[in-house]
């Protein structure tokens, strides 16, 4: 009769060298499955049902693809995508320009550079909702800094968040203020990697500043700029905190981004199935964007190798 495997024997079997690797990553995999994969699959399932999470004992009702069809034909949804697109285009463009200019500035040596660099990087380390609150106070028409500053020149109260256009600009400004340093950081990494001898050679050849930039600097930072464009487009596409805190999506619904709308569908309207479907549409959008940019980066890399 074989002896039962003792606890020590099981431990020995478990800790065998060939099982140590899987054993070490098992907690991380389990956490990932519980907090990420399972909710993802669960919400994917829910996206085909009519379901209200607040109602205990009311089972989900099968709707098939109806949630998706409804969303794709809903003017409100397209309106929110439009708001999001305007903010993405505006904010990412400003971030790229400002980040690039800041990188050019900080690529040079000047007094207090290190300290100023730390200061410039500070906004991207703040919490998103804190930035929302900060700018809400900044824009407040009676006490806020910007309205008071403008009023000293015009004599009239300056109300930034009163129209759809101005409110959109206000959000773009706040988001760009926060994330331009991120673009700067990436571009700066490219700029400092340019070998100095290339500039020296160009100087000997009497190349103009523009030509030096086009033929030496830009090829080094091109892929990093594309990477910044990719990251910032995806992140801004999901923007929630700043518009939610700053404008609550207003005036009306003019600055309500797709993420804010998704939150309202999920937690105000409590249409859990519909919100899950919308979540997957947003996810699909992000995946498409990511693939496009990854493709662009790959093409650029292969071009530079050739």
């Amino acid at each position: 009769m074989p002896a039962p495997r003792s606890a020590r024997g099981f431990l020995g079997w478990l800790l065998a060298p060939e099982r140590r690797g899987p054993l070490l990553i098992a907690p991380a995999i389990a956490t990932l499955v519980i907090v990420n994969i399972f909710p993802l699959l669960w919400s994917y399932g829910l996206s085909f049902f009519s379901y209200n999470a607040k109602k205990i004992g009311v089972p989900p009702r099968w709707r098939g693809l109806d949630n998706y069809v409804d969303l794709f034909t809903d003017e409100d949804v397209w309106g929110r995508f439009q708001n999001t697109a305007v903010i993405v285009i505006g904010s990412v463009a400003v971030q790229l320009v400002v980040g690039f200019l800041l990188a050019l500035l900080f690529a040079r040596e000047f007094p207090l550079r290190r300290y100023l660099l730390m200061l410039v990087l500070a906004p991207m380390m703040l919490s998103l909702s804190a930035v929302g609150v900060f700018f809400k106070l900044f824009y407040e028409p009676t006490f806020g800094f910007i309205p008071r500053l403008v009023q000293t020149f015009t004599g009239e109260p300056f109300v930034i968040l009163s129209t759809p256009v101005k409110a959109t600009i206000a959000i773009v400004f706040a988001d760009a203020w926060m994330w331009s340093p991120f673009v700067m950081l990436l571009v700066l990494a490219g700029l400092v990697s340019v070998p100095k001898y290339l500039y020296e050679a160009a100087e000997i050849d009497r190349a103009s500043a523009w030509r030096r930039f086009r033929t030496i600097t830009f090829p080094y930072i091109r892929s990093l700029l594309l990477l910044a464009l990719l990251f910032r487009t995806i992140e801004t596409f999901k923007i929630f905190d700043v518009p939610y805190v700053l404008t609550e999506g207003g005036p009306g619904t003019s600055t309500e981004t797709i993420s804010v709308y998704l939150f309202r569908v999920a937690f105000n309207y409590f249409q859990t199935g519909r919100a899950s479907a919308l979540g997957y549409i947003v996810l699909f959008g992000v995946i498409v964007l990511t693939s496009l940019y990854l493709y662009a980066i790959q093409s650029r890399s292969s071009e530079s190798i050739e």
Partner: peptide, 23 residues
Amino acid sequence: SPPVAKTGQMDIFVIQDLYMQGK
């Protein structure tokens, strides 16, 4: 009303604060 009325954000805490600040 104070200009914040034009933003659609003049809620119960905002008017309370404006009043308390003597505006």
